[in-house]
Structure formats: structure tokens, C-alpha cells
Design a protein around this nucleic acid. Sequence first.
DNA 1: TATTCTTTTGGGAACATTCCCACAACCGTT
DNA 2: AACGGTTGTGGGAATGTTCCCAAAAGAATA
Lengths: 337, 337
Amino acid sequence: MKKHQVTIIDIAKNLGISKSTVSRALTNNPNVSAETRKAVLEMAKSLDYQPNMLALSLIKNETRLLGVIIPDIQKPFFAAIVSGIQHAVGRMGYRTIIAQSDESPQIEKENIQALMLSRVDGFLICHTRDTRNFDHVKTLYQKGFPLVSFARICQELPIPKVVEDDFNGLYTTTQHLIETGRRRIALLAGPKHMRASKLRQQGYMAALRQNGITYDQDLVEHTRFLPEHVTSAVHKWLALPKPPDAICTIYDAGGIQIIQLLKNKGIRIPEDIAVAGFGNDPVASLVEPGLTTFEQRPYEIGLIAGKQMLDTLKKKFTDMPPEITISQGKLIVRSST
Amino acid sequence: MKKHQVTIIDIAKNLGISKSTVSRALTNNPNVSAETRKAVLEMAKSLDYQPNMLALSLIKNETRLLGVIIPDIQKPFFAAIVSGIQHAVGRMGYRTIIAQSDESPQIEKENIQALMLSRVDGFLICHTRDTRNFDHVKTLYQKGFPLVSFARICQELPIPKVVEDDFNGLYTTTQHLIETGRRRIALLAGPKHMRASKLRQQGYMAALRQNGITYDQDLVEHTRFLPEHVTSAVHKWLALPKPPDAICTIYDAGGIQIIQLLKNKGIRIPEDIAVAGFGNDPVASLVEPGLTTFEQRPYEIGLIAGKQMLDTLKKKFTDMPPEITISQGKLIVRSST
DNA sequence: TATTCTTTTGGGAACATTCCCACAACCGTT
DNA sequence: AACGGTTGTGGGAATGTTCCCAAAAGAATA
């Protein structure tokens, strides 16, 4: 079944020369006579020789493979980032191994350890919503692996980071809601410990403060991005003596679910309650009414992250501590507000 | 920067024993005394030894890496398949390198050649919508690479194939439209040479025939899945002396676009024209009206394809020619029909 | 013709690991 | 005491490649 693979030694034997000479001919080394090179190239072609990258990797200790750790490839946001990363690093001959953590910190850790053993040349990591311990990434850092952190970043290491326009996104969205006459604006946030959620909430609070609206703790709910959390948050808000006249969320899927819930209850959007999201997922424009949302460009985030990885691999960042890069976004107003 | 990596030779030197013995202790080979094994394990731990999979791969000529070739990871259909594949093969310690062809047959070919050089252990391939020449896959087959073809399959090789419920899907959908009183049913198909498109069209035609409806060539349009093709098809149909009272498509994105187009023209759905899709993309339930569609389970397709790959790797299919597997679907009726 | 310089080639180490073979040490049996 | 068996260990080949060093062959100079 599996026949002997053709090696440079086979070429050498067939031509009665040494493997060193064959290697030179194949690698464009100048120290070969023109006729020898020609003979080697022809023989390589006729034997259908394929270089064995494994042997090369072993010598150079470089695989040209990058590990990409994401929670879930089925989320359009992550799929777009992966696409961006691949297009950025593919030009330089790097391939990516995608590993999904399924939002489990344990699996995230296992994936990283497995890819470390596979000797990938670097890691691009987006943590699970529950990752709070970063020891596994610190180990990577100590071992000298090039690292780039994106979206849900690790702040405890001096590595390149690419994030969304968190603060500004919710600041702008909240500002827009206030400008359209809303005063009791609820916020569907994420896990309390999560950096992006905290920043987005700060943007929301800053807009309220700037417009002289007092912050009402009852109008802010924290979720772990699960549908049941959204349902209970909405029910809680609707049961308030003074229910909100607008709800903004830190993620589109939550906004879309809220639209469905409110429609089912016969509540008019945006007349009774306005709804806004974050991210501009492909679905945001398809729901009825269209979801007002702060656009993010995940593909661009991937491109930037990939670029940063290439720079790190070229050791451009030997001294200067790598900065955090914010991918700008903009508000897209649709009929939900 | 990059310090010397710890090898079994370092362990051997530190303990004053040979590398063979260290190797045995580390691989649970029985021919080591209990005390030696203990000493080796402790030393390995204290030196933070990490086995080098590259060397192992070189010896065994096996990387535990699989190449997955898809057109576009940003399409939910392919993202779900990838997820299924990963979960199926991950259990057996296989990792996947995802390569996107961006619907370009040329890039598809280049990706396959690059991954071949990287010595992946097998390929799971979904071709571009324009791939008609399969020489690159035949080369792979001749070289003995395990192959699995899914969704847009290559029919010219005796390899495992996993496909959607093509014929039945459009047969059932068309049948449903007829049962709800439709008589002039248009079909938005795909490229003429594409197997899935042909089969789906056959399902559509079979349902018409069985109900005594004569096939009208004017009601069938072929697209390359681009939005502009959809627009011109719809315009053409609406300009007919007797426009259709239903439109079914072989992909959800087309159906959704048609819904938008008709709504913009003030045409009522489903009263004036009913619309049906294929695939049950996540968005199908979110548009208004909800898109009736024939559900496919891409995650399941991925699981099956991954399973078939594992079987092929275990050489289960030495003799029997591998069959084509059809992932069953079912009609989901929503308010667009 | 001898000497130096350049070009081309071959031999072997190195990368990290496993596996086969040989040998030593120890044990029990005759 | 000699023999056969088991158990633990070391040495070296093998995987496919590159790279360094030495040497051979050829060309150019004195």
C-alpha cells in the first residue's frame, strides 16, 4: 500500500552522485555545475520527488504552522476572524491549525498543550468567556512562543493584542438612544470579569453621565451569553414599576433574541422599546425590524492579528512592548431604534 | 532567545544512562526497572521535558494532521461542517489544517499541493462551485492519501463521499408547494455542471411530473450563487406574461435575497408568491416572513465525514468500494409558503 | 612546470526519536 | 559448576534533509 517515498538519496543513486550535490541542486545553491543541476532537476521530475518538510522542520525547528485557539468556529464573528488570519499569514507560507475550545477553559488549556507538542511556530488566542486563569498562556510565553491575543484578550502579558472598539461602541450607541429621546436605557452585559464587557459597560455609563441620566443598577443585567439569561433579564425588566424604553446589548445575538421576545409579547419596536446590538453580525440586517448595531469588522481584526503574528515571528518586537490595537467601528442605525 | 530544547539525551546524561533506556521509560516499554523509570520520570519533570513530535512524525511518516479544503469558512454551512469534522477526529488525536479556496479552483489546487508537502495524513475536500477538473485529487489518490469528499463531491474516484439530501430535498419542497395550491413554481438552481444542483433540479422536476404539471423551461434559472444572478432571475420571472406563484431555490441565501427583493416591490409573501429555500441556515428563521426550507445538518455531515476519514486511516476500506452517504433532512415549514 | 586559486564534489554530523540487536547480570535448574 | 532463561541496559541504525569541512579537479598565474 504505502510505497517507499522518493528521497534525495534515490536521486543521488540513480545519477551516481552524492546526496549533498542533489541537495545543493535542489536548493538553488550556487556551488553546483549547470549540467549537474539540470540532470538532478530532470531526475527529480521523472521520479516525482516531493521534498519531506518534516525533515526540514526537524532541522530548522520550525513548522510554518500557527495555532489558532477560538471558542467556536460556528459563530460568524470567529469565522470571519479566522478567515482574516488565514489570508494575512497565508501569503508568507504559514498554515493555521484551528482548535475550538467550545467555551471550556479546560479544553482551551488542553488544545494549547497539544499544539505546543506539535511544535507550532506561534499562537493566536481568543479565550473562552470563562477563562480567568492564564497560567497556560504564561507557560507559552516563558517558553518563547510568539503570541498574539485577540478579542477576548489576556492582559497579563506584554504581547500584541487586537480588540474591538468596546468603550466607544457602547458610548456611541447609548448616545444615539439618548438623542432619539430615550431615558430609561437598559443594558444587557456579559460576564462581570470579562474585559470587553466591562469596557462596553463603561462606555454606556459614560454616555448616561454626560447626558445627566442617573445610572440605575436595576437596568443592567449580566449574562454568560446564554439564551436563558437573556429571557430572564427581559422578564425582570418588564416587571419593573418603570420598565425601560430602550435596551442595548453588548452582542447582536442577544439583541436579536430580545427583538423576538418583545415581538411575541406584542411590544412594539422601537415605539415602546428600542433595541440595539453590537457587532453587526450578518443576521442583524435580516431581522424585522433591522437591528441598530455598532459595526465591528472581525475579518479586519483577523488580518491585523495575523500581521502582528508575522511581525512577532520576524522578531520585530524585541524591545518595545507591543501595544494594544483597537479595530475601529461605526454605528449602523436601522429600524429597531 | 531560543534556548536549547530539552531532549531525552539531556535526561540520559543527567542520570548517566543511555538514551535508549530513557526512551523506554518514557514510552511505557516494560523492559525497564521500576527504579530507573521513576528516576527518568522525575528528571523529565524537573527539566520540563517536552517530547518532539516532529522527530516522531519523521520516523513514523505520520503527522496526525488532516487537511480540510473548503471554499469559505465564513459560510455557516462550511463552518458547521468544519466543527463536525474537528469534533469527530479530535477524539482520536487528529488536528485539522483548514484551507480556504475562496471558490477559486486554482487556489484549491495550490492548497492541496501545499498540504501534501506538509505531509498531512489525509484530506477532506469540498470543491469550489467551479471545479470541473479533478486531476489534483486523482494525483492525491494515486499517491495513496486517504481521501473523503463531502458536499460538493468528486465523483470520479472510489472514495467515501458525504452529501446532502439533494433529490429528496427539492422533491419534498416542491411537493409541499403543490399541496398548498401552487402551480407555476420557479426554480433558482446552481451551476449546470454541479452535481448537487442537477440532483435538486431532478427532485423538483419529479414532483412536478408526479402531479401532472408540465415543466416550463422559462421558470428555471441557473446561478453561480452570486446576488446579481438572483436579481436578474427574479426580474426575468416577474416580467413573464404568466409570472410564477412560487419560487423555490436550492440555497437559503438565494431564498432570503428573493424575499427582500419581493418585499421591496410590494409583492406579498406568501399570498402573491411563496418562497422556499434549502439548507435551514441560521438566518432562515430570522427573516420576515420566516423562510420555509429543507433542513440540512452540516454539523452532522462533518461528523460523518470525519468518521469516514478515521475509518479510511484505519484501512477499513481495503476492498469494498466506499459508498456515498446521504445525510437525511426534513422540510421546515415557515410563513413564506 | 610548479603554485595558487576557484569551482565542484563527497563524507559525515546534526536534528530527536524509536527500534532492533547484542550483551551483561542475575536467577533457577540440573 | 555448567547451562538456559529472563531482565535490564547500551550501541547503533534509521527517518530525510541541510550544512560544514575537506578534498579533488580544473583553471589561471608565476
